[in-house]
Design a protein around this nucleic acid. Sequence first.
DNA 1: AGATAATAGTTCGCATGCGAAATATTTTGC
DNA 2: GCAAAATATTTCGCATGCGAACTATTATCT
Lengths: 146, 146
Amino acid sequence: MGEQQILEIFQSYREVHQAFFQLMTKAASKHKLTALQFVVLKVLKEYPEIRLSDLAEQVKLGNSTTSGIVDRMVKAGLVDRERTETDRRAMTLTLSEKGAALWRETEATRLHMMRSLLELPEEDQRELHRIQQKVLHLLRKSREEG
Amino acid sequence: MGEQQILEIFQSYREVHQAFFQLMTKAASKHKLTALQFVVLKVLKEYPEIRLSDLAEQVKLGNSTTSGIVDRMVKAGLVDRERTETDRRAMTLTLSEKGAALWRETEATRLHMMRSLLELPEEDQRELHRIQQKVLHLLRKSREEG
DNA sequence: AGATAATAGTTCGCATGCGAAATATTTTGC
DNA sequence: GCAAAATATTTCGCATGCGAACTATTATCT
């Protein structure tokens, strides 16, 4: 596989990633949310009282990035952010009343957004997952080796 | 495929994309470049006198994003940006002497960076490409349908 | 217990990334 | 040939995204 092919894979990943992101952005905007706020809303619904670092882990983002996203949601009144009782370094995140209500309103939008994606055959999903893991492994190995 | 699986695919794409990006960032930083400057350097080498919109097309980015990237490269003295003779709306982009020299210096780094990636079997590359196209198609269809 | 190390979040500086609006130029319609 | 539409790029506002530096708190080591 030559340099050209590698660059093409790199760009094809960015294309798919951005297409995904734009699809979610469009869906989220119906509720005056951003794509990541849409995702965070779901995580907070599933994991009440989650810590910021655990949320970051869930959404596969760095701490500082997640902190910013949460901060904007707190300012918008969607999330309550309080110091954790048992560890006063940490923050406990919970959906506010407004956030929980908004989550319920987004359900139809979520299903509608996913409609087309459901068409990807199970077989392809498995293959995609398998190769993704392989690629991730190679990339991480390469990164470690410097 | 449920909502959960879709979100997982979305995140796995972001993970691979970011791993790629970080690998390139690390390689590029050896020459005091960013990942995208690294890519643009190569495109400008291959397509001298390219227009900004054609460069944007090549790297799969929007015009405004590409404009910013090029602007920083012009300020760094790597790229010459001039009004196109035949169409004074457009800009013609070329590597400067400094940019061309830097490009030559990056060759070893490029090859080194790609080393691990070359291990992905041809079979997997083809499968990956096939499924990527399918996913992209589904995403675009979904986007158009609103 | 007190110094030291580790951990959790936030803030900062920088670079993407987009769409919308603005500017300059060219093309089209009549 | 001139008004209107189309096109190329830049600028703007906003939201990611990262790592490094900073603050506050907790854990560890002796």
